[in-house]
Structures are given as C-alpha cells and as structure tokens.
Amino acid sequence: MKTYFRNFIQFLGGTTLLSIEVFKELWTWPFPTKLTIEQIYQVGLKSLPIAFITAASTGMVMALQFGLGLEKFGGKLYVPKIVSLSIIREMGPVFTCLMLAARVGAGITSEIGSMTVTQQIDALRALGTSPIKKVVIPRVVACLFSIPLLVAIANAIGVAGGMLVGSSDLGLDPQFYMQKIFETITLTDYFSGFAKAPFFAIVISLVACYYGLNVEEGTRGVGSATTKSVVTSSIFILVGDYFLTKAFWVVEQWL
C-alpha cells in the first residue's frame, strides 16, 4: 500500500514537472514542426480506422438496445434523441479517447521507452538538445491537434451509425431521425462533449511520455511502462470525465 502511494505521488510530481517543462519549452524557438507533422500522421491519420469502428459500433448498438427496449413502452420514437445526445455528450469523446489511450498512448510509451533503454534519450541530451523539445512536444501537440478532430469525426460517425440501425432495423424514417437529431442537439450539448477532447489529449500524451521517459529495468520495463500508461490514462479519462461533466454542467447553468 505504501509503495502504491509513493508511486502515485512520484507519478503526480513527475507529470507535473513534465507539464511545466513542456509549457516552458513550447514557446522557445525553433518549434519542431517537421516532427510534429510526422506525429500528427501517426496519431491522427493512423487512428482514423479505430475511431471510425468504435464510433460506428457504439452508435449502432445503442440504437438497437434503446430501440428494442423502448419499443415495449411505445417509446421507439425517442431513439434518435437519446442516442444522439448520449453520443455527442458522452460516448463519442469518452470511447474514442479510451481507444486512443490504448493505441496512441501505448505506442508513445513503448517508442520513448525503447529510446530510453537504448540510451537514445541520453544521446539527445549529450548532443546538447532537449528530449522535451524533440520527443515530448511533437507528441503532445500532435495529440492536442488530432484527438479533438478524431472525436468530432467519431461523433458524426456514431450518430450516423445510430441512424443506420434506426432506419434499417427499427423502421424509423431517416428524415424523421435527422430532424429529431437537429431538434435535440444544441451547440451547448456539442461543446460540452467535444471540449473534453483536449483535456483527454493532454492526459493521454503526458502520461504516455512520462512513463516512456522513466522506463527502468530494460526491455521488461518497456512492457510494464506501456501497461501502466494505458491503465493510468484510461482511469484518468473515466474519472476525469465525471469531473469535466460536472464542471461543464455548472458552466451551462451560468450560460
């Protein structure tokens, strides 16, 4: 128990220091543009299929479950409202980011971890360059740029998936389905879901970089750091989602 607590404090301290270093070096010239574009390709473009499949299946399953469940009470017509609202406010951002924590987070940790154990990170420092600038910042910025875009795409795909099942399996008219979506979803709904994406992007990238840079015990350590990175990011996304939802809800009351 004591070790877990110590590790947790170490993790919090380490990620805080890493965040401060990233923030400080982000504004120093030159910005690693080429490396960032490469990472946007790795994080964003290569994650499109997984975001697409996750969102489509979530929307389809939700429409089917709600449709079959609500049909018994004559509430099938509420499916477009319920499904689109759930996807836009919660399921789209959270499920997409959980999948990205696994794909992107694991990739970042294992890549940086391998660089750490093969002394490539030390070599960067020995050559008078900053690993934060060359390794961490491109990944953090790429995640910050790509993940919200992926969430936006996933939201659209999820809603479309729901509509596909609504019209094919539940017999709802696609035009009626669309009309209900536009009647239900407000900009506030959209942004209260979408605005979580940058927070989750920071969590995924910083946690992954932190574990990668702090790998110990050689190649075995890379495996265990990768597991820790995915588990920690996922927990932070799920727990953080509650607090973000609550915070956005308070903001919505003000507006």
């Binding site: 093969t118 490539q120 030390d122 070599a123 050559l127 008078g128």
Partner: peptide, 18 residues
C-alpha cells in the same frame, strides 16, 4: 548544460544511434 555538451562530447558504449 547545452554549451558544456557542445564542448564535451560523449561516446556511448553501444553507439546510441537514433
């Protein structure tokens, strides 16, 4: 330390190539 590391080079045991 950057300017120190430019003045003093370090050759790693395994090369530590990128």
């Amino acid at each position: 330390l950057t300017h120190v590391r430019i003045k003093v080079a370090y050759v790693f045991q395994n090369g530590a190539l990128f």
